[in-house]
Design a protein around this nucleic acid. Structure first.
Lengths: 140, 140
DNA sequence: TTGGACCTTCCAGCGTTGGGAAGGTCAAGG
DNA sequence: CCTTGACCTTCCCAACGCTGGAAGGTCCAA
């Protein structure tokens, strides 16, 4: 146990514990992704262990590339005891498909750019197949 | 020759010829990526063959994933007769490295998400390794 | 009491368009 | 000549997911 059950943190501490910046935490709150925390006498946001766990959940989901909308749905499913794992899996599978599409697009670009780089001798002379390609559009 | 030397086009025609939308052409002009075209009596932008070639150049560069800043530099190099092909190649190589980095990052995500999807049986039951992972942070 | 580290809210901006409103221009057809 | 409709103009807003900064309040320790 790193955290006791009754620990109350400021936004800065919650940020360090969760990996989400304080700015981002306020932003998540503003868009309704996470609930509004209670406030201290000095109007500071006060986070408990549970809130920090939620933040960590969000942080991990974001780091896996899930869009905010997906994170919202994942959070709902997480908190829904009656969820069907199928719904979670479907969401993740859709994200996987998106990742694949992005990777394919990037690899296609990578291939084309790599060919151009290879074709260019890269010396002091002005002749350059890269510029010729961009200008005329020859795709080998 | 598809285009005669003295053809003058409206923004819509230039858009169709170049692959860049009219909206994007105006944007490129607003940020100084392309020069301001002359205007007709009715205040319409008038593009000649050269301008459309430039737009096509931009379009191809963008489609290869070059950032606007890079496109700007590529345009300059293109128009510089005294350029060194080395400079062009260096730019393209840097972009290639960026593409590789992005692909690696996405593939790392893809790997993690794929594992989660595989681990989840995806039926009517609520138990779901995906949510467990996001919550507890176990990365296999 | 003073300093400095933290917190607060609000506003603005990043990049690359796309959408849409409100209005001007132009060519063709009646 | 007038209308129609396709095109053009400028301008502002939305998207994404935050980040930065300004102006000011709170808290703790020396």
């Amino acid at each position: 146990m790193t955290l006791a059950d009754d620990v109350i943190m400021t936004i800065g501490e919650a940020a360090r514990e969760s990996g989400v910046t304080a700015k981002a935490i306020r932003y998540y709150e503003s868009i309704g992704l996470i609930p509004k925390p209670v406030r201290t006498g000095g109007n500071y946001r006060a986070y408990d262990r549970r809130a920090v766990e939620t933040l960590r959940f969000v942080h991990r989901a974001r780091s896996l590339g899930f869009a905010m909308e997906d994170v919202q749905r994942l959070l709902s499913l997480w908190q829904d005891r009656g969820r069907k794992s199928k719904d979670v899996r479907t969401l993740a599978q859709a994200h996987l498909d998106e990742l694949d599409a992005k990777i394919l697009a990037l690899e296609s670009m990578r291939h084309a750019v790599a060919q151009l780089v290879e074709a260019c001798h890269g010396d002091h002379r002005p002749d350059c197949p890269i510029l010729l390609d961009l200008a005329k559009g020859r795709r080998a």
